[in-house]
């Protein structure tokens, strides 16, 4: 486990001056990831906030080789890069002792939705790469449209808080579980507020042989209608309310990596975000209740599985 001091002493591979919003969760996530790899990293990003915010020509925030190709294909793109690496190693065009890590990054749009097929395919094929989803719960880059990661009741521009339909009407997809069902060596959920947990998971994920996946909650002041200075606290509350449990599945064994001392009510997380404002009206209280019930059940399910084999 690296100390904060050790981490801070490492090269900054993701430079400042990028155009991501103040209070955005993505930069601290990417900076931690790149510090955890231990070897040179080649990365790709799906179209989205991270890509747009870091690459406007002729500037780049990336001090590592990086490519953006399209929205739905980060996992397929990294498959090609990693295959070229294996081909070159076999042919001696890359020295046998040189190790490169491969990282694909996408938002929830590029991962849960449009890029889901490419992700599933790449996981099944067993490429040696880490896929990281920065989950901010909607298509934030294009102006806050709902995704399959958007929480129940959340207001987005395509699921607005209307008189008849108060925000998103569907429960979110549990992508981490779906990924775990691919039987890959490592999958985890993490949060940028808990850097120690995130860094340790990233280090494991980079070092397993085969595909690894991390789903990382990423606060978005723009789409959550929250204050930029509250972002890290918002991430903490998502975890302390057990909306976003921190856990990992390593070689089939599930482990809850953080148990809040005091599990907070979901309303504590909702009330600092404008996207849930309408849920506090009496006529919408059923959505708040349903959310709390499902979160409780899901948390209990994880606790019951802690330390056990999931497949």
């Amino acid at each position: 486990m690296a100390t904060l001091k050790e981490l801070a002493a490492k090269d900054e591979l993701f430079s400042g001056g990028h155009r991501l919003c103040s209070g955005c969760g993505i930069p601290p996530i990417v900076r931690l990831l790149l510090r955890s790899a231990g070897s040179p990293v080649v990365a790709t990003s799906a179209t989205g906030c991270l890509e747009v915010g870091t690459s406007i020509y002729p500037y780049t925030a990336w001090r590592i080789p990086w490519i953006h190709s399209a929205f739905e294909n980060a996992a397929a793109t990294i498959s090609g890069i990693e295959s070229a690496y294996r081909a070159f190693k076999k042919k001696g065009r890359i020295p046998a002792d040189k190790e490169i890590k491969f990282l694909a990054l996408g938002g929830d749009g590029g991962t849960y939705d449009i890029g889901f097929q490419a992700l599933s395919g790449a996981l099944e094929r067993g490429h040696n790469f880490l896929y990281v989803c920065y989950d901010n719960g909607a298509y934030m880059n294009t102006g806050i449209q709902r995704s399959s990661a958007t929480p129940l009741g959340s207001a987005t521009t395509t699921s607005p808080a209307g008189a008849k339909r108060p925000g998103k009407q569907e429960w979110r997809k549990d992508l981490t579980r779906v990924v775990v069902a691919h039987n890959i060596p490592y999958a985890a959920q993490a949060s940028p507020h808990n850097w120690r947990d995130l860094e340790g998971k990233a280090r494991k994920a980079f070092n397993v042989a085969g595909p690894a996946f991390m789903n990382i909650i990423s606060p978005c002041p723009l789409g959550w209608y929250s204050k930029p200075e509250d972002s890290i606290n918002a991430a903490r509350l998502a975890v302390d309310t057990c909306y976003w449990p921190l856990y990992e599945v390593e070689n089939g064994i599930l482990r809850v990596t953080y148990r809040p001392k005091e599990k907070k009510p979901i309303a504590d997380w909702f009330k600092i975000q404008g996207r849930f404002k309408h849920l506090f009206k009496p006529e919408n209280s059923h959505l708040l209740d349903e959310t709390q019930k499902r979160i409780d059940a899901e948390w209990q399910r994880l606790l019951d599985m802690d330390g056990k084999a999931v497949f």
Binding site: S69, G80, I81, S83, A84, F88
Partner: peptide
């Protein structure tokens, strides 16, 4: 997409 990634890697 994989062809693009591999070709960008110099293959």
């Amino acid at each position: 997409s994989a062809c693009v990634g591999a070709s960008a890697a110099g293959a």
